[in-house]
Design a protein around this nucleic acid. Structure first.
Lengths: 206, 206
DNA sequence: ATAATTTCATACCCATCGGTACAAAATACG
DNA sequence: CGTATTTTGTACCGATGGGTATGAAATTAT
């Protein structure tokens, strides 16, 4: 199912649908799902409400498509860091990459997925569940990578891959929150470095 | 200025004001500020809207009073952990204490202050600022404690107290989010232990 | 040209939001 | 008793939330 097939008959769409989706992502990224109103969306996207509904369905579906766009970026944190061979470099790359990406001023601060958990009261349960499922998918990628490292003898005895993955996730969440609250790149780099040092010293053979 | 002085004339208040405030705290704790509606509040507190407004002012002031109640608890995480003499025990106490307190089922999961940052769009700017100020006050307590440790020669050379405080804060935020998302005590204990081990090994003399 | 089709802008729908007017009810004081 | 004072329940306010009906505008097909 494509986003919305371009019509070859009838009045042509007056806006760039991909660009509009990107603007929508930016608003959700900044304010979360519940914190974003249709008026904010339409204003940022430069279209009126009926156009939004015709092109994207409704607010919920627009959110899902925006998150899809976010996660399928080629320069995703995970995709870059997972290219390293040694797990030590993966861990360093993830933490330092998070610090850099969460404070990149070319887009809202923090991680869009983590920020979206903000303002998600039980009214929008499907949003909450979807975001949680995505996050746990990412966590599973970490677990798999660390289990691989364990099988290759890179981890210290007693280091559980699942726990290590949870700790990394917790650090991402913390870094994301601090970035959203205005922390600088320099600040987060130091935090990420200290965290990586501790994790590597205790859990990874050298 | 007390919460609301008991009137000695006129119709007596028909509910326990302290108990009502505690119920309000629980709702904010679970849903954040924006995520909580007046109807949810009045239902949880067992009173009607005019009673709420007469006793607490408005939603914003009720929130502030609820957060005050939360922070002035005697069994606060910081108050307990800061009783230790050695900074290593403080760090362990903070992380393990966070794991325990954030998953305590006698109240909502996670940290109320951290959860309140969720769903805080720019409409309620004063709420956001207040919560941020409180959080940075707590962070300053960490900085002060770690600077003390540094002066007493407990920290390794090159360990900056500010960075260490930020890292601890990031871990609190991560642990809080994972607790809110349903992580178990056992899970978070393992994460906190691994984090503490890494931090102590690299940053604290033994 | 005209019909078919699609998008657009305006103007509206209903539910919920935080907040309040008002009068009945319940107490203390004279 | 009556009166002043405070709380309580009901019923409401304007603003905003997500979502839509409708007809005009713009294009392709005939």
């Amino acid at each position: 199912m494509t986003i919305t097939k371009a019509a070859c008959v009838g009045r042509p769409r007056g806006f760039d649908i991909d660009l509009a989706l990107e603007q929508a992502l930016n608003v959700f990224w900044r304010n979360g799902y519940e914190g974003t109103s249709l008026n904010e969306l339409t204003e940022a996207m430069g279209i009126k409400k009926p156009s939004l509904y015709a092109a994207f369905g409704n607010k919920e579906q627009l959110f899902f498509k925006a998150i899809d766009l976010y996660e399928n970026r080629p320069d995703s944190l995970f995709n870059i860091a997972f290219q390293h061979e040694r797990v030590a470099d993966v861990i360093r790359g993830l933490l330092l990459g998070a610090a850099a990406q969460f404070t990149d001023c070319s887009h809202p601060q923090g991680c869009a997925l983590i920020n979206s958990t903000f303002s998600c009261n039980e009214a929008s349960e499907s949003i909450k569940q979807t975001v949680l499922a995505r996050k746990s998918k990412h966590k599973q990628r970490l677990v798999d990578r660390f289990e691989l490292a364990q099988n290759q003898g890179e981890l210290q005895e007693g280091c559980e891959p699942v726990v290590l993955a949870s700790l990394m996730t917790a650090l991402f969440q913390g870094l994301s929150m601090q970035a959203s609250e205005g922390a600088s790149l320099d600040e987060l780099q130091k935090v990420a470095t200290m965290a990586a040092e501790g994790i590597l010293t205790v859990n990874v053979k050298r």
